[in-house]
Design a binder for these strands. Structure first.
Length: 184
DNA sequence: CGACCGATCGTCT
DNA sequence: GACGATCGGTCGA
C-alpha cells in the first residue's frame, strides 16, 4: 500500500472537468494506511458518510474538504472494505497550463505551482462534491479524472521519503515515512 | 526570507 | 461546538 504511493510518482494525473482538459505529473504523495493509522480518517474502522468512499474498491476518488476551504484529492488503493488511500500532494503541470493558471487565479506559474494538496485539486478543477468518482477516462460529456502511465519514472535517488505533513495529532504514526516527493 | 494569522465550513463529538 | 491531511497574504527583520 505504501508502495503504491511510491509508484504513483511519475504517473500522469488527468482531469477533464467543465469541458477543460488538464494534466500533470505526480511528484508528491502520501500514504494513509487505513484502520490502524491514526492519521487516517478511517482510523479505528470509522465508517461515516465521508469515509465510506475509502471503503470502496481501489480506483475510486476520495475527495474531502479541509479547513473549510480546500478540496484534497486521494486515490483509494485497496480492495473493497479496506480503507487505504494515497493523497496526491503535488503535480508538475503537463497539459492545459492555461486552464490551470486560470483556476489558480495566477497570471504565471511560480516555482511551487501545483505543489500542495489543496492546489492540486484546485487547478485540476476537482471539488469535494465529486468524491466517489471512479478514475476512468471520460466517455460522454461528464466530468472525469484518471491516471495514465506515460512511461515516466523517477529513480530512488531522486525521491525523498519523509514523515507526513500536518498529522502531529497522530502520535507515533505521525513519524511514519509515508510521504514521497521528487526532489526539485 | 521566516513566522504568524485569517479564511471558512463539513464532519464528528 | 471544536477542529482540521491548507493556502496565501502580511508583517517584521
Amino acid at each position: 500500500m505504501v508502495q503504491i504511493a511510491r509508484d504513483l510518482l511519475g504517473k500522469v494525473l488527468v482531469s477533464d472537468v467543465g469541458g477543460s482538459y488538464a494534466s500533470g505529473v505526480i511528484v508528491e504523495t502520501e500514504a494513509y494506511a487505513g484502520v490502524t493509522d491514526k492519521a487516517s480518517h478511517a482510523f479505528g474502522d470509522r465508517h461515516t458518510r465521508r469515509t465510506s468512499v475509502m471503503y470502496q474498491s481501489g480506483g475510486h476518488a476520495y475527495i474531502y474538504l479541509c479547513y473549510g476551504i480546500h478540496s484534497l484529492f486521494n486515490i483509494v488503493t485497496n480492495r473493497k472494505g479496506v480503507p487505504h488511500a494515497v493523497l496526491i500532494r503535488g503535480i508538475r503541470p503537463l497539459e492545459g497550463l492555461d486552464v490551470m493558471l486560470q483556476r489558480s487565479g495566477k497570471p504565471k506559474p511560480d516555482k511551487l505551482f501545483g505543489i500542495g494538496p489543496g492546489k492540486v485539486a484546485k487547478i485540476l478543477g476537482l471539488h469535494y462534491s465529486m468524491s466517489g468518482m471512479l478514475l476512468i477516462p471520460r466517455k460522454g460529456g461528464e466530468d472525469a479524472v484518471w491516471v495514465e502511465d506515460r512511461g515516466i519514472s523517477f529513480a530512488n535517488r531522486r525521491v525523498e521519503v519523509t514523515p507526513r505533513i500536518g498529522v502531529g495529532y497522530a502520535g507515533p504514526d505521525a513519524k511514519l515515512p509515508y510521504r514521497f516527493m521528487v526532489k526539485p
